[in-house]
Design a protein around this nucleic acid. Sequence first.
DNA 1: CTGCATGCAAACCGTTTGCATCCCC
DNA 2: GGGGATGCAAACGGTTTGCATGCAG
Lengths: 132, 132
Amino acid sequence: MIRLTTQRQIILEELAKVKTHPTASELYDMVRKRLPRIGLGTVYRNLELMAENGMILKLEVGGTQKRFDATTEDHYHIRCSRCGRVDDIDIPVIDSLVESAAKSTDYQILGHHVEFTGICPDCQKKPKPGLQ
Amino acid sequence: MIRLTTQRQIILEELAKVKTHPTASELYDMVRKRLPRIGLGTVYRNLELMAENGMILKLEVGGTQKRFDATTEDHYHIRCSRCGRVDDIDIPVIDSLVESAAKSTDYQILGHHVEFTGICPDCQKKPKPGLQ
DNA sequence: CTGCATGCAAACCGTTTGCATCCCC
DNA sequence: GGGGATGCAAACGGTTTGCATGCAG
């Protein structure tokens, strides 16, 4: 596997602490409390590297920023269309989807992901779109 | 609805021509052959506007760039993990997914999308990852 | 000592925006 | 003539990268 440097270890620990699926810069802020001199680049490099090595999951979800997940088992997500927050959806993964899809494409299918969109509890409480 | 300017019309026509789901700049290149002086900003503005008005679909898929689709009916997609190309997957949309998901979240669910990942026919033919 | 990892800052890429001009009603 | 739409270019936000330094084997 890969060497577990202090930075990597702390990034991993901080990621595992939360059930939300933080973006790189959210994680950067979390990690910086323990390693004030760490650089954003290091966070990106290590997240990428750990994702390649299957230690974490890089979520391929909609929205502008990539998000990361310490849980590497296959599962689905829901994304808040107002604030971008992402949470797990705890329903069984439907592997048979891949079989059906295989019949309708020439792609070599590697996997699938279901992403729900909705309004998260926090945003439901708030008035409306952008402000206040 | 919205005013159908020359630019909008041509963007729409070019988008409808292809079954792939082009990015804004791919579309920009296509449109530029007919409207050489059009600006990238105009393409972005109009895609956004037409998406808001339900004339086209803005795909919330993984990958770095947004992609657009002239087909506005709900359907699933597959994305090539090598080249990023996106194609339709012609299997029935499973509305019951939303019901199951609703039981496991406090979000107010608005919709869902299934995205398969795989290797497209073109990339299967080519040697390996990046180059050549 | 040697090489990978880091911090830092600049570069990059996709997208958005401000502004002066243009065009159509 | 007036308001939205356009072309252009600059700004922006997220991510990547080059480079000199640091640290661990």
